[in-house]
Structures are given as C-alpha cells and as structure tokens.
Design a protein around this nucleic acid. Structure first.
Lengths: 161, 161
DNA sequence: AGAATTAAGGACAAGCATATCGGTTTTTTA
DNA sequence: TAAAAAACCGATATGCTTGTCCTTAATTCT
C-alpha cells in the first residue's frame, strides 16, 4: 500500500473535519464512530497531528479537533508525511538505503520515475477535492439534502467548488 | 513502500539468478551473501517461489535455485504477486474493503488511476530490464570486464538488449 | 554404502504497526 | 466550587513481518 493504516485513518478524519463549520470542534470519539475507526487509536493520531500543527485541539466540553489549515491547502502528502514520514519513498527499491556509485541498483532509474508520480499524486490531491468528491457521491445516492452543504440550513444559496 | 521487504529480497535474488548460466543452479546462501540478504530468510522466500512455479529447485551438492521462466518474461508484478499478493492494490484507500455504491469514498477515482499506474509499472518492468540496467551500471564503474556478460568466456560477440 | 551438501519445513524470537485501557490535566457548565 | 467532558499521556496487549535456529529429506560424490 502507498501509506500506513494510521495515515489512512488520518486522511479519513481530515475529510470528515473538512465538513464541520470553521471554528467548531469535532470530538475524536465522534469522528471515529462515524468513520468506523478505533476511537483511542484515532485519538492518538489526531493528537500527534495537533502537535505537528496540522490540527488545533481544545480540551473540555465543546472541545475536540479542528483543521489548522484550509482543506484546499492540505494535501494527502502533508498528512502522510506527518504520520508515516516520507523516508520510504527516498529509499531505493533495490534495497540499498541510497543508490551510491559503488553500489548500483538496476531498479533505481525506473523507480525514481514511479516514485515521483506517487508523490505528485499525494501532493496534488487536497482534502478539499476528496471531501467534495465524497459529498457529490453521497448526494447522488440521496444520502444528502442535494445541492446543499451538510450544514443544517434549509435555503438554497448555491456555492460552487 | 510499494511492496514488502520479502518481495524486495525476491526481486534482488531474481536479478542475481538472471545472470547465472541457464541450467545451472545457484545456492540460496550464496545469493544471500552477494546480495546482502539474511540467508535463512531468503531461503524461505525462494522455497515459496519454487512451490509457486517461478523457480525450480534442486537438493544436494550442485543443487540450488534457477529461474523457471526467462528473465524477459518475468515481471516484477509476478514476483510481488507471488510474495505479497495483490490484494492491497484492490483495496480502496478510503478504507472500505471495496467501494460499494452505498458506501462511497472520495478517494476512489483518483486512487484507481494511481493504482493502475503502479500496476503498469510492476507489470512493465521485467527482470531482464533490471538485470541489464544493473550490469550496465557496473560496467560503467569498471566492476565488470566491459562489454561482456559475466559468463567466463573471453571473446567479444556483442549482443544488444 | 557412507559422507557431505543442499533445499524443505517447523518452531521460535524480535521488532514494529495496530489496538486497547486507565489515569491525569484542562476546560466548560451547573 | 463541584462535576462533567474532552484532550493528553503512559502502559500494555495483539498480530503481522522479519529474522533465526534446528531437524529432516533428497541428492551428489567418494
């Protein structure tokens, strides 16, 4: 797989957080429940991401987590980097920690290209895009009010993108 | 990473095996020594690949392992499939085991494209290509006789590709 | 036939990722 | 001020991957 399960959980949590009104906090337990993620495990991950500055956290009642950066400006890459680190992608598939001149590796060049492609994918995919794609699918299935963000308002001020 | 360490070891062993004369066997311990792989661990992997038909094995003195398929016809994908299985690539990055209609995932479409790209890479890269690339690098470094395959002959019938 | 050598295969150990549990601190609300 | 609620934090459990060890079976060579 491209990234760990922890990173996957983090991404799913971020997608969820992208849909809560700015300024409001969502509880770890609640996110875990809705996204079907082990609660305590997710809490640890979110705490870690709060320490790294991708999330803001608040204790006590009305507390929880909220995005520290706009969904448009958070890429999958930032999350994966914060959770897994990117060292795996710097390692050479041929086994050497790095392709040095005296220890050449037949895979190095082709892997280098593939790796860039993966990194580009992670960097080029923002939480906003993923969240929008998800919302669109749900609307198509009638699981959402249609044409409206999940905020509990009822009138219809269309907003695109 | 794209595949497990076991798969990486297998690929490196295959690259090594591509350079032994056809019909001859190479010992697991010897491959492990030259490729810097834990010997017993590699042996298990090779035995597994022999059971799956990618290698042929022989016991006793003069025994060892040899490729059951021409290097040109073995792709990284076949090896990774035999060692890791490909199920990870069928799984959706959004977390669901499969993107069903009633449980949509915002990542599904973009990941599908990325995944195909990775599979194409693994399928399109043969052991022969990797072995040739490695040999070429070694020649450039003066670690090989230059212009000659590592077979113990001495004349110079150039062969391309 | 016997000794040496190699793969085959089972048991086990170590390390890491994943997951769970309980207590502590901070904050809000009554 | 007390109680409740949430993040925070450490300890522990579990499962999988990686790695080691030892015995057995098959083959070759003397």
């Amino acid at each position: 797989m491209i990234y760990s399960r922890s990173a996957e959980y983090a991404i799913r949590a971020f997608v969820h957080l992208a849909s809560v009104p700015p300024g409001k906090f969502a509880m770890a337990k609640q996110i875990a429940g809705e996204a079907d993620i082990p609660a305590h495990f997710l809490a640890k991950i979110l705490q870690q991401l709060a320490r790294k500055g991708l999330l803001r956290s608040s204790k006590g009642p009305t507390g929880g987590f909220t995005l520290a950066i706009a969904p448009r400006d958070i890429s999958l890459c930032q999350i994966v980097d914060a959770v897994d680190g990117l060292s795996d992608y710097k390692r050479c598939l041929g086994g050497r920690t790095e392709c040095r001149d005296d220890a050449p590796c037949g895979l190095h060049d082709s892997w280098k290209r593939m790796r860039s492609s993966i990194i580009d994918y992670l960097e080029g995919t923002s939480i906003l895009v993923v969240a929008n794609s998800l919302e669109q699918k749900r609307r198509a299935l009638g699981q959402l009010p249609a044409q409206e963000a999940p905020a509990p308002r009822k009138n219809g001020s269309r907003k695109k993108q």
